[in-house]
Structures are given as structure tokens and as C-alpha cells.
Design a protein around this nucleic acid. Sequence first.
DNA 1: CTGACTTTGTGCACACGTTCACAAGCGGTA
DNA 2: TACCGCTTGTGAACGTGTGCACAAAGTCAG
Lengths: 271, 271
Amino acid sequence: MAAQRGQRNGVGVTPPAPTAAEITTPIPRVTEVPAARERARAIPEAAVARLAVYLRVLSGMQEHGSGTVSSEELAAAAGVNSAKLRKDLSYIGSYGTRGVGYEVAVLIEEIERILGLTRKHSVAVVGIGNLGHALANYGGFPGRGFPVTALFDVDPDLVGVPVGGLPVGHIDDIARVCAEREVSIGVIATPPPAAQAVCDRLVSAGVQCILNFAPVVLQVPDHVEVRKVDLAVELQVLSFHVARRADNAAVLAEANGRAANGRAVDGMVVS
Amino acid sequence: MAAQRGQRNGVGVTPPAPTAAEITTPIPRVTEVPAARERARAIPEAAVARLAVYLRVLSGMQEHGSGTVSSEELAAAAGVNSAKLRKDLSYIGSYGTRGVGYEVAVLIEEIERILGLTRKHSVAVVGIGNLGHALANYGGFPGRGFPVTALFDVDPDLVGVPVGGLPVGHIDDIARVCAEREVSIGVIATPPPAAQAVCDRLVSAGVQCILNFAPVVLQVPDHVEVRKVDLAVELQVLSFHVARRADNAAVLAEANGRAANGRAVDGMVVS
DNA sequence: CTGACTTTGTGCACACGTTCACAAGCGGTA
DNA sequence: TACCGCTTGTGAACGTGTGCACAAAGTCAG
Ligand SMILES: NC(=O)c1ccc[n+]([C@@H]2O[C@H](COP(=O)([O-])OP(=O)(O)OC[C@H]3O[C@@H](n4cnc5c(N)ncnc54)[C@H](O)[C@@H]3O)[C@@H](O)[C@H]2O)c1
Ligand SMILES: NC(=O)c1ccc[n+]([C@@H]2O[C@H](COP(=O)([O-])OP(=O)(O)OC[C@H]3O[C@@H](n4cnc5c(N)ncnc54)[C@H](O)[C@@H]3O)[C@@H](O)[C@H]2O)c1
């Protein structure tokens, strides 16, 4: 059943091809494992994020009654290239049937296994302001295996008040409560100046994964995993594309509409 | 001033090397531009996102009174490698002084120019529920050049009610209002089933940039830029790391502590 | 059982992004 | 002016991720 898992290693390990090594470097001797510093590097981070998307699409298909999907269908629904999808799936094993496709239920199960969704991950939200309220009230997490089991704030007016059915705790109790409720993911939704301190307290409390909404760069020990959601950055990236589009339009207009001599284009690009 | 901009093209364009093209494909004729489908590829997307981070750090430094920064300092504050930071900055030009560093004010100005922040980008939020309320009430956007100028919902109880000082409009007025207020960025915070329809209406209204919070893959025309914020995916990626960490710990413990025979490891992985 | 057809799984080449390492350039000092 | 130490800017190596194209492996009809 799961015996095929070894295949994924075949991709990264079978052809290590130390071609250039012998030319430039003074022979790094292939005794242990030359390149890979951590033996554990297997599924690309980008692929992991996509697997989560596939999982959601598959869940929708299952509710809709589909028994099997081809890589083409699933790729279209997930908005990616079908080759990429197949490669992503190949990282977790060979669960497809050639000529037919993938069984939806099997794929769901395997992706959930790889993503560690077979067990629940208790979530704590710190900072119950605008965003914290929205998160606490959101019903989409518990159903997906991420029950919100603790809320924290410093504001005395908030402490004790139930939000989304859960009373807000005081930040000073964070260590005790997180331990009691086995919190594995901490969400930071405090103002930026408080974020690092809150982060430190979460880490002290033993939380190893943090999702940060505050626009600050958090310093954490190596063993803690941080992901950030930065809306200002998202907006600014969009802004960049607007600006770019405008620039391009101007350049194109000039290149097309005006004279066909080559100087105009060079004038824009070079020095 | 903008003279050095041409340099960045040197990196990505000088070696287009259409080697395999002549071998496999039936000669795609090198009349116009062989490789680059869009002539505009210059600053890597990843670098753009980081520039936004640098900008925020720099703003903090400016308020703190710093006149200049070295790449080392700025990199540390932004949580990146200093070489990467310098390369990122080199995409937008040469604004540093060797032996000294970068002038904070100059860098801020240039990054803002590249990101298109010299003009305001009007934002519309659609779906004024939990998340929409948080976004509408959030004070951090207007100050950064992203004024929220329109809110929309279908709920009759919400329409007309002011949220964050702005009355909620009806979704049916979206085209008119977006045109009037020159909305350039649409934010989707509706339930998933409504997201694609809302997206289509935004696109019809002329909005070319969309920030999507609904966990669905949006279909849009080529000229529309979509970025998505998917909290479920973020949590699942964190979950994956928890699982991996646990696996590694188990494997390591076994490999180190127990007997050195190979059978034990296989026993863990299979089935 | 055979052969035609479909779809997976992956080797390979390319593109993108990251990191290293160092020459070039600048300010300060004698 | 000549030297020295510091920091930038970037060529080049490297690693990661993406996409193509096809052999392998299955289904199904006859
Ligand atoms: N609301 C949004 O839409 C939005 C958008 C982008 C980014 N953000 C970021 O998310 C964070 C939260 O935003 P918000 O609008 O909810 O802010 P908010 O001011 O409404 O809420 C912050 C909450 O954190 C609490 N808090 C402050 N210090 C604390 C501490 N040390 N420990 C625990 N709790 C503490 C406050 O009492 C308050 O309840 C901010 O960093 C903000 O920049 C929010
Ligand atoms: N709240 C969160 O913390 C959170 C977290 C992750 C993802 N999300 C996603 O963000 C989206 C919004 O979440 P929420 O908690 O704010 O939901 P919500 O149900 O509180 O709000 C949705 C709002 O959208 C409005 N709406 C519905 N159909 C609409 C339409 N066709 N046009 C305009 N408005 C319409 C509803 O009237 C409602 O006010 C959802 O897709 C959700 O999955 C939310």
C-alpha cells in the first residue's frame, strides 16, 4: 500500500548528478550525503501549499458525488498546470490508475495524512480586536481540524467576555492555558508593537507554529515555524502590477503608434 | 536618475539561449521576440513583495531618526540575507553609497515609485461580514495610500449602515460606484459560493486587481491580477510542519537511541 | 488475448530565485 | 595626494521549482 512512497525519493536522490562538482570544486567526496544538509527535504514548500488547495477542491468534488478525477480535471479546478499537479501528487506517492485517474476518496485521505490533518490542531488567537473577532467568529476552521480553543487579550474590558462562544482569557495566563489545551498553533492579531512580545510568550508556552497578522518581522528560535499574512504587502504588490501595466501600456503605445524606427524603444530600455 | 534602470534587464535578458527550440519544436521563427512572451519581465515577484517589507522597515527607521542604513542593518531588520537585499535593491537602481550605505529617505522614495505608491489606490470591499467589518474598520490602509472608498453587500439589513465611517452600498451598484470612485483594487470577503460572481462583477466594473479572501480559485481574464489570502491553507502548511517535525523526531530517536539494524525504520514508514 | 486508447508518473531542460564572493567605488586619514 | 578600510553592486554558481513530452501501465472492446 504505502510501499511506493520510496519512489518520491527517486526523484531527488537517484540522479544527484554531481557533474559540475568535479570540475570546479576540489572533489567533495560522496561518502555520506554531500549536498542535503537536512536529510528530511522531500516535499517542496510550494507543493505543500498547493496540496492544501487540491484537498479543498477534492472535498467539494466528493460532496458533489464524483468518484474519480483525472489530473486534467483536478488541475483545471485548482487553477494549475496538470503536469504540476501530477508532480505534486507524485511527492506523496502513486495513488492514481493509469488510463483512469485518481480516486477522490483515496487522494483526500493521503493528502490529509501528509498534511498531518489526521489529528486536530488546537489554535489560540491573541489580540481580540477587529481581526481577532473575525477569526474567533469564523466557523470555517473547526470543521477543518483546527478548533479555536483559546483567546487572549490584555484589555480588561475584553477578558471574560465570550467571543464566538469562547471567553477571552488574559494574556498572562497564556502559558498555563496553552499547555492545558495543547495549543499547537498561535495566531497573532495584536497591534504591531505588541507582536514580538506576544510571540515570545507563545514560544515560551511551547507553541511551535505561529501565524502572524501583525506587520512586523518576528524573531523566533529555529524550531518555531512562522507564517505571516501581510495585507499591506499584498496591496502593494497589486499596486506594483497596476503601475507596471500602466508603464507597459505607455511603452506599447509609443512602440506601436509612433514611428517604426528602432531608436524609440532603445531610448526607453537602455540607460 | 532612472538611467541605470536598464541594468536590471541585463540579468534576465542577455542569455535567452533558445538552444532546445531548434531541436524539438518545428522552428518558431525568431522574428519578433523568441522567448519572453511578455516583454515586461523585470523585477522578480518575490523581490517585489520584499521591497514592500523593506519599505515598512525603512519608514520605521525614518520615524526613529535614522538618516542612513547599511544593507546589513536593513537586512537584519527585514529578516533577510544582506546579499538578497542588495540584489533586490539593485533591481530598482543604484541608490547606495559604497562605504556608507543607503540614505533612508531616498530609498523610501524610490521603492514607493517602483511600487506605484506615488498615487493613491482606491479600494472597494465586497462582503461586509466578520472579515469585511475588520477590513473596513482597519485604520492601517488609508495612511499607506490605500483609501477604502466603497463597501458592498447583498444583505438589505447592512446596506446603508455605516461601517468604519462609510455606508455600505448595494452590490448591484458596484459598476457605477466603482467607476465614480475610480476603484482600482477590489477585496472579496464574501462566502465562497458568491466569490466568483462577485469577482465577475468587479471585473465588469473595470477593476483590474483583486484580493481574494474566499477559499476558491477565481477565474479571471488575463489582464486581471488576483492575489489570494487563504488562511486554511496557511494553517494546513503549519500543520504539515508539525507533522514533519514529529516524524523526524521519531525517526531520529529511533535511529540514534535504538539498535542500528535497518528493519526498524521500514517498520515505521510502511502502512 | 490482443490491440487501441487513455492517463499517470517522471526524466529532462529550462526558468527563476538565492547565495557567494569580490572588484569597484567612496569617505576618511595621514 | 595616496592609502586604507568599509560597503555597495553584480557576475557567476547553485539550488529549487516549473513545464514538456513520452514511456509505462492501466482499461476496455472485440
Ligand atoms: N483589521 C484588519 O483588517 C487588519 C488588516 C491588516 C493587518 N492587520 C493587523 O492585524 C493586527 C490586529 O488588527 P486589528 O484591526 O484587529 O487591531 P485592533 O486594535 O482592533 O485589535 C488589537 C487587539 O490586541 C489587543 N492587544 C494589544 N496588546 C496586546 C498584548 N500585548 N497582548 C494581547 N493582546 C493585546 C488589544 O487589546 C486589541 O483588542 C494589527 O497588527 C494590524 O496591523 C489588521
Ligand atoms: N472571518 C474569518 O476570519 C475568515 C477566515 C478565513 C477565511 N474567511 C473567508 O472570508 C470570507 C468572508 O468570511 P466572513 O467570516 O466575513 O463571512 P460572513 O458570512 O461573516 O460574511 C459574508 C458577507 O458577505 C455577504 N454576501 C454574501 N453574498 C454576497 C454577494 N453575492 N455579494 C455581496 N456580499 C455578499 C453576506 O451578506 C455577509 O455579510 C469567506 O469566504 C470566508 O471563507 C474568513
